[in-house]
């Protein structure tokens, strides 16, 4: 857990540093403040965050030095959970394909594929799988488009 803890802190710190490099580019359109430059407050928060993240990294390193559980094992154990990985993959694909395939096609593919990958007894659950997929997709589409008078992405892969 602690290597992961440090890795996450390093990742967040990298984001903070990237933001920090942008501070000099901040300009004020209004020039209203006489007591603080446009970058003063962002610098204050970015520095505070950077210090806190460094402290987390140091704390994790100290704990590691004291000994403890094997660091990478919990992460590997998490990654080995096939259902989590399957759902994360289908969720990412759904988000990426939502725009080109439209809501109806991508939702049908996403829900049916996810249920198929997650369920225990595939053969027995196929009819329920189809029913849940179709009912959920159609119901949400009707509620959003007709009930809320909003829009959902349409199929546009073939220039539609």
């Amino acid at each position: 857990m602690r290597i992961l803890e440090s890795l996450v802190a390093v990742l967040l710190l990298a984001v903070v540093i990237v933001l920090g490099f942008q501070v000099d580019n901040i300009e004020s359109a209004t020039q209203v403040s006489q007591h603080s430059a446009p970058g003063t407050i962002p610098t204050f928060f970015l520095s505070a965050c950077g210090i806190a993240l460094c402290a987390v990294i140091i704390q994790a390193a100290l704990k590691r030095k004291d000994g403890g559980e094997s660091q990478l094992l919990p992460l590997l154990r998490t990654m080995k959970r096939p259902r989590r990985l399957a759902f994360l993959t289908t969720a990412c694909l759904f988000v990426l394909l939502l725009y080109p395939l439209g809501f109806i096609v991508s939702s049908i593919l996403f829900i049916s594929l996810t249920i198929l990958l997650l369920c225990v007894n595939r053969r027995r659950e196929t009819p329920i799988n189809i029913l849940v997929t179709v009912v959920a997709t159609v119901l949400v589409y009707v509620i959003v488009v007709s009930g809320l008078e909003s829009h959902l992405p349409e199929f546009r892969l073939l220039g539609g």
Binding site: A9, L12, V15, V16, L19, Q22, N25, I26, E27, S28, A29, T30, V32, S33, P38, I41, P42, F45, L46, A48, C49, A52, L53, A55, V56
Partner: peptide, 24 residues
């Protein structure tokens, strides 16, 4: 504390009424 401050830093992205400009 670190992640709370990280959230604040992420919230800095975009338009700020204080400086009248978008940042980051």
């Amino acid at each position: 504390i670190a992640v709370a401050l990280f959230g604040v830093c992420i919230s800095l992205i975009g338009y700020s009424s204080g400086v009248g400009e978008s940042r980051f």
